[in-house]
Design a protein around this nucleic acid. Structure first.
Length: 230
DNA sequence: CCAGACGTTGTT
DNA sequence: GTCTGG
DNA sequence: CCAGACGTTGTT
DNA sequence: GTCTGG
């Protein structure tokens, strides 16, 4: 799954520029080493046929929710049920987005101890994670929020975790963000195939505490492993 | 009909 | 055990 | 995702 | 808002 990630300003800003329209102003991004669910995150979405960057709350609040709440686990969305889930299907049809990250963390239980790993792109400045967004409004309050789509891990990543966020390559970003793309044709993007080469590094359990926000979160504790395309 | 859910992962 | 906060 | 709280009354 | 369960 994906419950914690990272934004390192300079390289990620470059990555975001590459996936935004060329005439869109340079976004300002601050470096965040340990972003947790319910925090504000930067999201690329389509508005009036243009790719925009906006700040959204990482925990989807459906437009019909009586109040923003964390009663239900809404920071990830299972790819298998996006089309039928009452909470996600409207967003799946017309409000897909990209959550650009420098890398994300996964925990693996080893001898009953949870060990964090940092996952990043092996040949790029960032990762484009598939997401959904929604807009909630009541009285004077407006909340834009998002969730990250998860899928079964490809064979090459099963050793790390059974489920991972959906990584999109450049062509897939275009498909995912296009409002006119029929959801049926997105099945290939949600399949358990690795289409972005990755580098995985064990890191300090310092990252476990979501209050720890400095670079010690990505301090390696062992050698990296590279994972090639399927 | 009304009331209540609407979600994810992992684990024993 | 389960919910809230980050 | 993980960590940490989970409670009440009255007071400096 | 919309579906499921009773």
């Amino acid at each position: 799954m994906c419950g914690r990630f990272n934004v390192v300003s300079a390289p990620l800003t470059q990555f975001i520029m590459e996936i935004l329209d060329s005439d869109t102003p340079v976004p300002h991004l601050s470096t965040e080493y340990n972003i947790a669910p319910t925090e504000q995150v930067q999201v690329v979405y389509t508005e009036a046929d243009r790719r925009c960057l906006a700040s959204m709350r990482w925990w989807l609040v459906p437009h019909w929710a009586p109040e923003p709440s964390t009663k239900y686990s809404m920071f990830n969305a299972k790819s298998e049920t996006l089309a039928t889930s009452r909470a996600f299907r409207d967003s799946f049809k017309s409000r897909r987005c990209i959550v650009p990250v420098s890398g994300y963390y996964e925990w693996r239980t080893e001898q009953s101890v949870k060990v964090p790993y940092y996952v990043e792109a092996d040949a790029d400045k960032g990762l484009a994670l598939a997401g959904l967004w929604d807009r909630w409004e009541k009285d004077e309050r407006v909340v834009y929020s998002c969730t990250i789509v998860t899928a079964e891990a490809p064979q090459s990543m099963q050793a790390l975790h059974r489920r991972i966020p959906v990584h999109l390559n450049r062509a897939e970003i275009t498909q995912w963000l296009a409002v006119e793309t029929a959801t049926e044709s997105l099945a290939a993007l949600l399949a358990p195939t690795l289409r972005v080469p990755l580098k995985i590094t064990p890191v300090s359990s310092y990252v476990n505490n979501a209050r720890h926000k400095d670079s010690r979160c990505v301090e390696p504790t062992g050698p990296s492993v590279r994972i090639a395309l399927d």
